[in-house]
Lab assay of single mutants.
Amino acid sequence: SSPEYTKKIENLCAMGFDRNAVIVALSSKSWDVETATELLLSN
């Protein structure tokens, strides 16, 4: 995975989300952090 994707994963994990959930959310939202965060918060 690219450093850009890794940084997005790390940033969301730092907010307390599960790493696997973060990866699923990001990949399902075309790696857009904002919409992935909304998805994680709604679960």
Rank of each mutant, 00 (worst) to 15 (best):
L26E: 11
N20P: 15
W31A: 07
W31P: 09
A21V: 05
M15D: 02
S42T: 11
E10N: 05
N20E: 15
I9G: 00
M15W: 00
V33L: 09
L12F: 12
M15C: 05
L39D: 10
D18G: 04
W31F: 15
L40E: 06
S30H: 09
A36L: 00
A14D: 07
E10M: 05
K7W: 05
K29M: 11
T37S: 09
S1T: 11
W31R: 08
A36I: 00
M15T: 02
D32I: 00
A36D: 01
S2N: 15
T35L: 15
P3H: 10
D32T: 02
T35N: 13
A14R: 09
M15S: 06
S30T: 07
K8A: 10
T6P: 04
E34F: 05
E4S: 07
V22K: 10
A14S: 11
T6L: 11
P3M: 13
K29Q: 12
F17P: 08
L41W: 10
S30F: 04
L26H: 08
L40T: 04
S1C: 10
E38V: 05
L39A: 12
T35K: 15
V24N: 13
L41A: 12
V22T: 10
N43K: 13
D32Y: 10
L40P: 06
A36M: 03
D32E: 08
M15E: 05
M15K: 09
S28K: 14
S28A: 14
I9S: 03
V24P: 12
Y5Q: 13
I23W: 05
W31V: 06
T37M: 15
P3L: 12
N20L: 07
F17W: 08
D32V: 04
A25V: 00
A14Y: 02
N43T: 14
A25D: 02
C13Q: 09
K7Q: 13
G16Q: 01
T37Y: 11
L40D: 05
W31C: 06
E34I: 04
A21Q: 12
A21F: 01
A36G: 04
V24T: 15
S1M: 14
A21D: 15
S27H: 14
E34T: 10
K7T: 09
L41F: 09
V33R: 05
L12P: 01
E34K: 12
K8G: 03
I23V: 13
T37K: 15
E10Q: 06
S30C: 11
L40Y: 00
A21K: 14
V33G: 05
E4K: 05
V22G: 09
L41R: 14
N20G: 11
D18C: 01
Y5P: 04
G16I: 01
D18N: 11
T37A: 13
K8D: 05
L39W: 12
N11M: 11
L39Y: 12
W31K: 09
L41Y: 09
L39H: 13
L40V: 03
K29H: 15
E38A: 13
C13G: 02
S1Q: 06
N20D: 15
A36R: 02
A14M: 05
K29G: 12
L40W: 01
A25I: 01
N11D: 06
Y5E: 00
A14E: 11
L26S: 07
S30L: 06
K7G: 04
K8V: 08
S1P: 07
E4N: 06
S2R: 07
Y5R: 13
M15L: 07
A14C: 01
P3Q: 14
E34S: 11
P3V: 13
K29T: 15
T35F: 06
L12K: 01
N20T: 14
N20Y: 05
N20H: 09
K8R: 08
L40A: 05
N11G: 11
E10K: 07
L39E: 14
A14H: 08
V22D: 12
S27G: 10
K7R: 10
S27R: 14
A21W: 02
L41C: 07
C13A: 08
E4I: 14
D18R: 04
N11T: 12
V22H: 05
F17Q: 09
E10L: 04
K29Y: 03
L39R: 05
T35S: 15
T6Q: 14
V24M: 13
E38L: 08
L40H: 01
S28V: 07
N43R: 15
S30P: 03
V33I: 10
S27A: 12
C13M: 15
T37D: 04
L26G: 09
N43Q: 14
L40C: 02
L41M: 14
C13F: 05
A25R: 01
P3C: 09
V22E: 10
E4M: 06
T6C: 04
L26N: 07
E34M: 07
A14L: 05
L12C: 03
E4T: 08
K29S: 14
Y5G: 03
S28R: 12
V33E: 14
E4V: 06
L12G: 01
I9Q: 05
L26T: 05
K8S: 07
V22W: 01
R19M: 06
T37C: 09
T35A: 15
R19H: 04
G16W: 00
S30R: 11
V33M: 13
K8M: 09
T37L: 13
R19S: 08
S2M: 09
N11Q: 14
E10Y: 11
L39G: 05
E38F: 02
D32P: 01
G16V: 00
D18P: 11
D18W: 00
S28Y: 01
E38H: 10
K29E: 11
F17C: 05
I9A: 02
T35Y: 06
I23P: 09
D32L: 01
S1K: 15
P3R: 09
A25T: 04
L12E: 00
F17E: 08
N43P: 06
N11W: 03
I9V: 06
S30I: 00
A36F: 00
S27P: 02
L26A: 09
T37H: 10
N20R: 13
K29I: 02
A36V: 01
S2A: 07
T6H: 11
A21N: 06
V33W: 02
A25L: 00
M15G: 02
D18A: 08
S27L: 07
M15I: 14
M15Y: 02
W31L: 03
F17S: 05
V22L: 01
T6G: 02
A25H: 04
L12M: 07
I23C: 11
E38R: 13
V24D: 15
S28H: 13
S28I: 14
E38P: 04
C13E: 06
A36H: 00
A14T: 07
A21C: 02
L26C: 09
N43A: 11
A25M: 03
N43C: 04
E34V: 09
E38T: 05
W31N: 15
K29V: 13
S28D: 13
G16C: 01
T35E: 15
L40G: 04
F17R: 03
A36S: 07
R19V: 05
I23A: 13
G16M: 01
L26V: 01
T35V: 11
T37W: 06
S28L: 08
F17V: 01
S28M: 10
E4P: 03
D18I: 00
E10G: 04
L39N: 06
V33S: 07
K8T: 10
Y5C: 09
A36T: 06
L12T: 02
N20Q: 14
D32N: 14
D18S: 10
S2E: 10
I23K: 14
V24C: 07
M15A: 06
I9K: 04
A25S: 06
P3T: 14
D32C: 10
S30V: 01
E10T: 05
S30E: 14
K8Q: 10
G16K: 00
D32F: 01
E38Y: 03
L41V: 13
E38W: 10
L12Y: 01
I9P: 00
T35R: 15
S2G: 09
A36Q: 02
P3N: 12
R19A: 04
I23D: 10
S27N: 11
N11H: 13
W31Q: 08
Y5S: 12
D18M: 01
S27C: 09
R19I: 05
L26W: 00
L12R: 02
D32W: 00
C13Y: 02
E38Q: 15
K8H: 06
T6I: 12
N20S: 14
L40S: 03
T6N: 11
D18Q: 10
S27I: 14
T37R: 15
L40Q: 03
I23F: 08
E10A: 10
F17I: 04
K7I: 11
